[in-house]
Simulated assay, not measured.
Amino acid sequence: MEIHGTCSTQFSAVRETFAASLHSGADVGASVAVYLDGQPVVDLWGGYAGPGRSRPWRRDTLTNVWSITKTMTALCALVLVGRGELSLSEPVSTYWPEFATAGKDPIEVRHLLSHTAGLPDWDQPMTLDDLCDWEKATTLLTRQAPRWKPGTVSGYHRFTHGYLIGEVVRRICHQSIGTFFADQIATPLDADFHIRLAGENDHRVSDMIPATDPAPAPNPHVALPVSAYVTAQETNSTQWRRAEIPAAAGYGNARSVAALQSVLTSGGHTPQGQLLSESVCHTVLEEQSHGTDLVLGIPLRFGMGYALNAKDAPVHTPGPRTCYWGGRGGSLLVNDIDARMTFAFVMNRMTNRGLYDPRGHSLLQATYMSMTQ
């Protein structure tokens, strides 16, 4: 199977690993990118854009990256922090007064970013229609109480993360977070990533291929099962693409993910100018929690908007100052601040391995191996 794109000689191991994954059938269609000092050294793609294998995965193919969208939501918050319009230690109710009910007064903005706010789900079942209704989703969150003392432990805010941060952004900027992201980040950086996909881009989308490997056994460490859930088939729908679900419904490819996230590994510099100060970039590394996540049931160390490197974490890298996150099905993003490296892997064939998916880990390992040569 032919691999397309560019790859510096130093990173030939990444190309070989990527090709092997496609040839073996572990991947159907995928892309991988590595940026150093804000510049691409790997930008590869290959395979097919969908289960029918009738369309090739092209340079501009887009796919749903699921929870890697959360890292774009985090960038929006960081931009506002850099402008002095948002304080991470300020109560959420400072910006969203209706939020200060049912014991939520102590919740700070940093708790939203670190999944420690105690609002990992809604108190009632949520359908896809409900998730597409911004006012309903956010209003319901204002009415409920936190499920634990905010700031004490993490419980992955699978969908609520995007609505909580998105509403704070909306209150400050009077724009939806998808519009803010497009106007202030993606468009100025010429990055092909979308939170709410316009119909003109539908022809470029690769549908997700649902996982066929066995679902993991019930985790005895999960204390808080969540009820808001959508299937892979539902997320292949036009309804999902047009919705603004900023924790899960972002569309891009490895190049656009890496181009945007490399802002953090280049000290806030971009080819178009300074987006963030270096000090704001480093706030992502401020530990907010470390322990077994109440929802995912795995050891996680959370910083500001990202998980952080840790020996007991699912993603452990040589660089101590590393932040990362993944998307449902297997996509992976890693920012190594000290190495000034950003790695991104995006694919359409889903598995049930989550943050432990070997495809992304193998490519990441090849990246680090290449950097030591």
Rank of each mutant, 00 (worst) to 15 (best):
W57T: 02
E167L: 02
G50I: 00
I337G: 09
A74Q: 04
L86C: 06
H203M: 11
L285K: 01
L260A: 09
G252P: 11
H161L: 13
A30H: 01
R321K: 13
D43E: 13
Y356T: 11
V205R: 06
M208F: 12
S31K: 03
A198L: 08
Y251E: 06
V295F: 04
P120L: 01
R359F: 05
S93P: 08
G178T: 02
Q288S: 10
A217I: 02
D133S: 07
L128P: 05
L78F: 04
S227P: 09
V230P: 12
D123I: 07
T265M: 03
T372V: 09
L141E: 03
R255N: 15
F159I: 02
D202L: 09
V284E: 07
H174R: 15
R242N: 14
Y324G: 08
L86V: 00
H115T: 00
V14R: 01
P97V: 00
S331L: 06
G84K: 03
N236E: 13
A186K: 02
G354M: 04
P299R: 11
D293F: 04
L355A: 13
V28H: 09
G5T: 01
T322E: 07
D336E: 15
L296C: 11
Y156G: 03
V65R: 06
W96S: 09
H23M: 12
S93A: 14
D336W: 12
V28Y: 12
Q274K: 14
G297D: 09
A339T: 08
D293R: 02
R242P: 10
S93D: 12
A307M: 14
G326Q: 06
G166Y: 06
S176K: 12
L296S: 12
G52R: 13
R170F: 00
P120T: 03
D202A: 10
Q175K: 13
C323H: 14
F302W: 15
Y324M: 07
D130S: 11
Y95V: 05
V32W: 00
A211F: 04
F18P: 02
Q233E: 15
P40E: 07
A211S: 10
L128G: 08
R170M: 00
F193P: 06
R143D: 13
C132R: 10
H111G: 01
G330R: 00
G354Y: 02
N335T: 10
F180D: 08
W66C: 12
R158N: 15
H316D: 09
H203E: 14
G326N: 06
T73V: 00
G297A: 08
A19C: 11
H221Y: 14
V168D: 07
A13K: 10
G25Y: 01
V28Q: 12
P188M: 08
R349K: 15
S279M: 11
C323L: 06
Q272M: 09
L285I: 05
Y368E: 05
S54R: 15
Q233F: 14
E16F: 04
W240I: 00
L164T: 06
F99C: 02
T292Q: 12
F345I: 03
V65S: 10
T127P: 09
V92D: 09
Y356C: 10
P150D: 04
Q124W: 13
D357V: 01
S227F: 14
L88R: 01
A310W: 05
P320G: 07
A74R: 00
T351V: 03
V169K: 05
D37H: 14
L128R: 04
G103M: 00
Q184V: 08
W240F: 05
G303I: 02
R204E: 08
T238E: 15
M371N: 11
F181H: 11
R196A: 13
